[in-house]
Amino acid sequence: MRGSGVKLLGALLVIGGAAALGHLEAVRREKRARELAAVITALELLESHVVYGQVLLADALRRVGEAQPGAGWAFLRAAERLEEGWPASRALRESFSAWAARSALLESDLAPLVHLAPVLGLSEGGDQARHLRWARSQLEVKLAGARQRLPEVARLCRALGVCGGLILALLLY
């Protein structure tokens, strides 16, 4: 009697754990799409400050950071590094890497931003606009991929978690 109770508890734990894993994966995918969209908006705002506002890069990054919750963290950090006297390329690379560790983005998602780092701020406005638009277009492709059938995929992840947990529990039982 006592042994079957423990087994039941173990099965519930396995099912619960697998369901949680499925849920977390679904949340990560949803978060990735949201973050990609936020970075694209941030780059649009940055282009506006840089190309039209002619705002110094550190101030432009700060304004973008303050206007964009989430993705703005990386821009605020880059602004701080620039104000400390770091070269722009190092400040941006370091900030995006630090943000990657706490975001749902994949390493490949950050590639356009990493490519942007050595050129941002170091040429005239028209050239800056081209670099920023290129990075945005790359991120838009990734966002389109991430959003493709996102609700179905998220539901599938959750369902697979629960089903996987059930199958594992049955096999162990």
Partner: peptide, 16 residues
């Protein structure tokens, strides 16, 4: 390159 970065505050576009 470092000096250009520093004297322009990484903002060449704003100093055109």
């Amino acid at each position: 390159k470092e000096l250009l970065d520093a004297v322009t505050s990484s903002s060449v576009y704003a100093l055109q």
